[in-house]
Amino acid sequence: MSSSPAASSPSSAPAPSTALTRVRREPRRRLVALAVAVAVGLALASVHWLGLVAAGAAASLVAPTARRGVAYALGVGVLALVAFAVSLGPAAGVLPGMRPVIYVAVAAALGLPLLGSLARWVI
């Protein structure tokens, strides 16, 4: 029984899984990565609106499937809306009367993370 050189070469070994693949496969790692992605994304969104795109991209990248990535991005958008309403404090009661402006805020909070979630379809 002689071993062939091709069988023992490093190129025939299975490729090691990437860190992102491990995060997508293991629920505990995925939960931690999602929490970090949401926290960093919402922190960025408090500074600039592109943070919502980054939050959607980061949240969707840790999702096991592309469809779940879209759901994670929508969840980030809902959390951004809740954070916005909480940051207004007592003034949040007048939001229903500000219809044109609130439509833009809701559309941006849901649409921009969805735009970011397109990263999951690429990577």
Rank of each mutant, 00 (worst) to 15 (best):
R24D: 10
R99H: 14
L118H: 12
A66V: 15
P90I: 05
A43S: 13
A6D: 14
A85K: 01
V82G: 02
G111I: 06
I123Y: 12
V40Y: 03
L110C: 11
A71Y: 03
E26V: 14
L52I: 02
V38Y: 03
R67L: 13
R25D: 15
V47F: 12
P14T: 11
S3N: 11
G56N: 02
R120Q: 11
Y103D: 15
S2H: 14
G69Y: 04
A58R: 00
L42R: 05
L114S: 08
R25T: 15
S60E: 06
V82T: 09
G111E: 08
A7H: 12
A109W: 05
L88M: 15
A80W: 09
P90A: 13
M98Q: 15
V23N: 00
V38H: 07
V78Q: 02
S87H: 09
P10T: 12
A63L: 04
P113D: 11
V53L: 08
V40N: 02
A15L: 14
L50I: 12
A45H: 02
A92M: 04
A43P: 02
R30G: 12
A19Y: 07
R120P: 09
S12Q: 12
Y72K: 04
V104R: 12
V94M: 11
M98I: 07
T21N: 10
G93R: 05
R30N: 13
G89C: 06
R30Q: 13
F84A: 13
A54P: 00
G69P: 09
T65G: 10
A33W: 01
A109R: 01
A66I: 08
W121R: 15
A39Q: 04
R68P: 03
P113E: 12
A55H: 00
A66Q: 14
A108F: 13
H48P: 03
V122T: 08
F84R: 08
S2T: 15
S9H: 14
A43Y: 06
P90R: 09
L81C: 05
S17K: 12
V78C: 05
P14N: 07
A57E: 03
R25C: 08
G116I: 08
V104S: 11
S9M: 08
G69L: 07
G77C: 02
V76Q: 03
L61K: 04
A35M: 06
A35H: 05
V38S: 04
L52R: 01
L52T: 04
R67Q: 11
G93Y: 03
A54G: 01
R68L: 15
A66T: 14
L42I: 07
P64Q: 07
A7D: 15
V82Q: 06
